[in-house]
């Protein structure tokens, strides 16, 4: 019997299965197992978490395949990995390794000053960051099967993720109310492919899953992003840079499911120890911002 693989249906379908869940950054097999046991729906295999990438400076690249394989062998949940923006060969390598999702990520140093990867060429699905709806539309037009806010990775400051999600929500409201001719004008003004805008108008939401990422450090942060309408949560440095990663991981998983229940949120927020060492995103000089990479 014939099997069709690599279709957009199965690519976006996996993202649908991750909804309401937490995807955690891990740098080794031991952390991956802690994440899985705490209820993570997937892990992001990395050499360094964003806070350490930020601190290290220099050029951040795809992780060592050995590291990724070690993490893939350690858990049964999906494993994601990051490649540089526009670096389609890193993506080819990650696909060959068999990772379940590729994050074409601004957290790594971009490899192409103008273009993102043509993601239609791959069987493995991609997630991409976006700061607003036009950016999300461009990534979807390139074949991204999942979107996340960019936020400001490695800071532990949620303000940028909130800014990006609120802006996307506002722009979706504009699209829903626009007439067909206005959609074309919006597409021109925003630099957004009109076919994707049409799809958004028809559905009343993005045609793919939209997660929160970039600065989530507490259960309350996760619930805030869920109440703003995100489909799920990425936590980068927020877990394994905190004082008690296992406890915090479990608490963020609970908060992502029961985001509308302040009683549960109060319970899980109790006695978690220190969060990750954080930086106010507003204090960062322009050149240190990760969210402006790729557009």
């Amino acid at each position: 019997m014939e099997r069709l693989t690599g279709t957009f249906k199965v690519k976006s379908g996996l993202a649908e299965m991750l909804k309401g869940g937490v995807i955690m950054d891990v740098v080794n097999a031991e952390q991956a197992k802690i994440a899985e046991k705490a209820g993570a729906v997937a892990v992001m295999a990395l050499e360094r978490v964003p806070a350490d990438i930020r601190a290290a400076g220099g050029v951040a690249r795809m992780a060592d395949p050995k590291k990724i394989k070690e993490i893939m062998d350690a858990v049964t949940i999906p494993v994601m990995a990051k490649c540089r923006i526009g670096h389609f060969v890193e993506a080819q390598i990650l696909e060959a390794l068999g990772v379940d999702y590729i994050d074409e990520s601004e957290v790594l140093t971009p490899a192409d000053p103008e273009n993102h990867i043509d993601k239609w060429q791959f069987k493995v699905p991609f997630v991409c960051g976006a700061r607003d709806l036009p950016e999300a539309c461009r990534r979807i037009a390139e074949g991204a099967a999942m979107i996340r806010t960019k936020g400001e990775a490695g800071t532990g400051d949620v303000i940028e993720a909130v800014r990006h999600m609120r802006l996307m929500n506002k722009q979706i409201r504009i699209v829903r109310q626009a007439s067909d001719e206005e959609l074309v004008t919006l597409g021109k003004e925003w630099g957004a492919p009109v076919e994707v805008l049409r799809l958004i108008k028809e559905l009343g939401r993005l045609p793919v899953v939209n997660f929160a990422a970039g600065g989530i450090a507490t259960p309350a942060d996760a619930a805030l992003m869920m109440q703003l309408g995100c489909d799920g949560i990425f936590v980068g440095s927020g877990i394994f840079k905190s004082q008690d990663p296992e406890r915090r991981a479990k608490a963020i998983v609970m908060a992502t499911t029961y985001y509308n229940d302040p009683k549960v949120l109060a319970e899980v927020s109790e006695d978690l120890g220190e969060p990750m060492p954080s930086i106010s995103a507003a204090q960062l000089p322009e050149r240190e911002l990760l969210q402006v990479r790729g557009n």
Binding site: M1, E2, R3, L4, T5, V10, G98, V99, D100
Partner: peptide, 21 residues
């Protein structure tokens, strides 16, 4: 793994042809 995820046509008893993901 995900790269092997697929769509296929099935025959379901009492239902008939069914496209499955």
């Amino acid at each position: 793994r995900q790269r092997d995820s697929f769509e296929a046509d099935l025959h379901i008893k009492d239902i008939g042809e069914f496209h499955a993901v």
